[in-house]
Amino acid sequence: MTKVSDMAQPPLSDVFIEMADTLVDDFDVLDFLHTLTERCVELLGVTAAGLMLTDGAGNLQVVAASSERTRLLELFQLQTDEGPCVDCFRTGTAVSVDDLTTARRWPRFTTAASQAGFAAVHALPMKLRTEVIGALNLFETEPGALDQEKLRVGQALADIATVGLLQQRAIHARDVLTEQLQAALNSRVLIEQAKGLLAERLQIDVAQAFTILRSTARNHNRKLSDLAQALVDGTERVQA
């Protein structure tokens, strides 16, 4: 896969067209959310991006991240208890920490984020009307605020992620939203199982396994979760 740093920033319109194209097709929600976090990194010039969703019981869980590095995933997951993402989720408003070294509010989170080399973090709410369903989390290695324009684009991307989650079905009912959120969270677990399986079979690490899983799905025009299920069921194999 092409590295983000090797690529020029894509025009904003291209990204929105890509997302819209995906949404009208039969698509895999996790693959879609993963792409979205990658586009966040490219468009907003941040170091890493991740999406956290509520599990229906008020906890946040990671569903997609621009990199599957374990340390990064752990950093997102740490925010189950405390951190800008949780605050953003609870209040439904954006939370920005321009300099982690001066932030006192989340001692465990800020320590871990600093150790991982991050200097600033931003969280944007994923909202459907009055309901907050999660947050888009952006990490920066340099301190500083995100400018207004980038915040607007980031919020638009968070909104697209919300729409993507609601997929084909009517979105008026809260029950439908609950069903979709649960299905997305379970897909994430499925992806982890498939990552482990591939990592062991090909003797690679789990982050590499994710890359192979995703590119195989793409190359064969398969939904990421369908391929993952077939691997876990043992009905299909993937070559390195």
């Binding site: 906890n59 869980q61 374990t70 995933l73 997951q77 189950t80 677990v189 499925l190 982890e192 199982q193 498939a194 990552k195 482990g196 399986l197 591939l198 990592a199 062991e200 079979r201 789990v206 876990v232 069921d233 043992g234």
Partner: peptide, 23 residues
């Protein structure tokens, strides 16, 4: 069962490959 630690699910997948059983 639905523990939020990704390692549990990754390990499940690895064991599938190690001993050839269902997930």
């Amino acid at each position: 069962a639905g523990l939020q630690h990704p390692e549990v699910h990754q390990a499940t997948g690895m064991i599938v490959a190690q001993i050839g059983v269902s997930a």
